[in-house]
């Protein structure tokens, strides 16, 4: 019985750990609290978003998701743009548990497909930060620095990310 219990605890721990913990969003194009609140409200209204913790001064938003939901990062970016502003940085915080990565850098976690930029490791372990790469997720000056070769060959249902 103890063994089963231990096994259950292990399974529970793994399933909790290996997932997106939260997303850190930094918005650009604003300096006023009214503008910041517009983004806060727009992001909070997204169906899979649970809580949003904001730092108005830094224009950053810590976004946590409802359990049992699959967050869609493109919807977060769209909410910011619809509020009238842009995304400067969108970073996903993940707690990996021996996540296998294929030779192209692709892997799937909680139903979300990712592709790592650069030379990928074979496995991902522990707490990592992954910055989303794409025109809608970065400042134009940062996006220009991304080599064009890295941007090709990414399926539309896959997020291109860079380990930080």
């Amino acid at each position: 019985m103890k063994k089963i219990f231990l096994l259950l605890i292990c399974c529970w721990t793994i399933s909790v750990n290996a997932q997106v913990q939260k997303v850190n969003l930094q918005a650009s194009g604003l300096t006023c609290a009214m503008c910041s609140k517009a983004i806060y409200k727009a992001v909070s209204a997204i169906s899979f978003v649970d809580t949003v913790l904001v730092n108005i001064e830094a224009s950053t938003y810590d976004i946590r998701f409802d359990k049992e939901t699959t967050p869609k990062f493109d919807q977060i970016a769209k909410a910011v743009v619809d509020a009238g502003f842009s995304v400067a940085n969108l970073t996903v915080m993940v707690n990996f548990d021996k996540q296998a990565v294929d030779k192209n850098g692709s892997f799937t976690l909680d139903g979300i497909n990712y592709k790592l930029m650069g030379t990928p490791p074979t496995t991902l372990q522990g707490s990592k930060k992954m910055q989303l790469i794409g025109k809608q997720y970065m400042l134009p000056k940062d996006f220009k620095k991304i080599p064009v070769a890295q941007l090709g060959n990414v399926a539309s249902n896959t997020y291109l990310v860079s380990l930080k």
Binding site: Q26, S28, G29, L30, T31, S59, S86, A88, L139, P140
Partner: peptide, 9 residues
Amino acid sequence: FSADGMYSH
């Protein structure tokens, strides 16, 4: 037209 930068546009 919109060109957003950090704390600027």
